[in-house]
């Protein structure tokens, strides 16, 4: 196996306390769901490796405290992120309304190039739904983001959501990465190159058969 180039991204989970950020993270990294979570007070992270487009992408996912009173502190973590999940809870109209505030904070504090994705969590809890799927789609469209409804409980759309954001971040950094990969491929494909050259040098002047004997 040829050596591949590795990259590391930082992705940040944002949204009101209780929307399920920590559960999403646990589901994605450990494939586990613990229904009764102690609410996050601080900033936690986990690592996960994805293979996208042949590149081993390692993502560091930061989970933040969503409570109002910690928000001035958590904002300082925004600028280190390349991608941001804006998470609301489909059973909470309030958490959906707050997305606007989260998004404007992101605009203010995160790097310009940051990629965002809108996530409506707890899609399994249909009985208590307060936010229609269409509302999510509409909001995402207004912000120019992709949108997923997820459930950390049933594992619906979890890998898809995380992979999509990672792909977008990868694409946003594509120019620099391509250059890296190109130079790396020179090495990897050396054997193939020689193969062709060897072929032509090995049987020159043999018009009858050409390179393939």
């Amino acid at each position: 196996m040829a050596k591949q180039y590795d990259v590391l991204f930082r992705l940040l989970l944002l949204g009101d306390s209780g929307v399920g950020k920590t559960c999403l993270l646990c589901r994605f990294t450990d494939n586990e769901f613990h229904p009764s979570h102690i609410s996050t007070i601080g900033v936690d992270f986990k690592m996960k490796t994805l293979v996208i487009d042949g590149i081993k992408v390692r993502i560091q996912i930061w989970d933040t405290a969503g409570q109002e009173r910690y928000q001035t502190i958590t904002k300082q973590y925004y600028r280190r992120a390349q991608g941001i999940f804006l998470v609301y809870d489909i059973t909470s109209e309030r958490s959906f309304q707050h997305i606007m505030k989260w998004a404007s904070d992101v605009d203010e504090y995160a790097p310009e190039k940051v990629r965002k994705i809108l996530v409506g969590n707890k899609s399994d809890d249909v009985d208590k739904r307060q936010v229609a799927t269409e509302q999510g789609i509409k909001l995402a469209k207004a912000y120019g983001m992709d949108f997923f409804e997820t459930s950390a409980f049933t594992n619906q759309n979890i890998a898809e959501t995380f992979t999509r954001l990672a792909e977008q971040v990868l694409a946003a950094n594509k120019k620099d990465l391509d250059l890296l990969r190109m130079s790396n491929n020179d090495e990897i494909n050396l054997a193939a190159l020689e193969e062709e050259e060897g072929l032509c040098d090995g049987a020159p002047g043999d018009q009858g058969k050409g390179c393939w004997c």
């Binding site: 020689e194 193969e195 060897g198 072929l199 090995g202 049987a203 020159p204 043999d206 058969k209 390179c211 393939w212 004997c213």
Partner: peptide, 23 residues
Amino acid sequence: ELEWTKAVSQALHPDAKYALVKL
């Protein structure tokens, strides 16, 4: 080197195509 390589490539089994990978 060339003479013998040519002789070899002409004598390989006629029912298949072969690529020279390395000499």
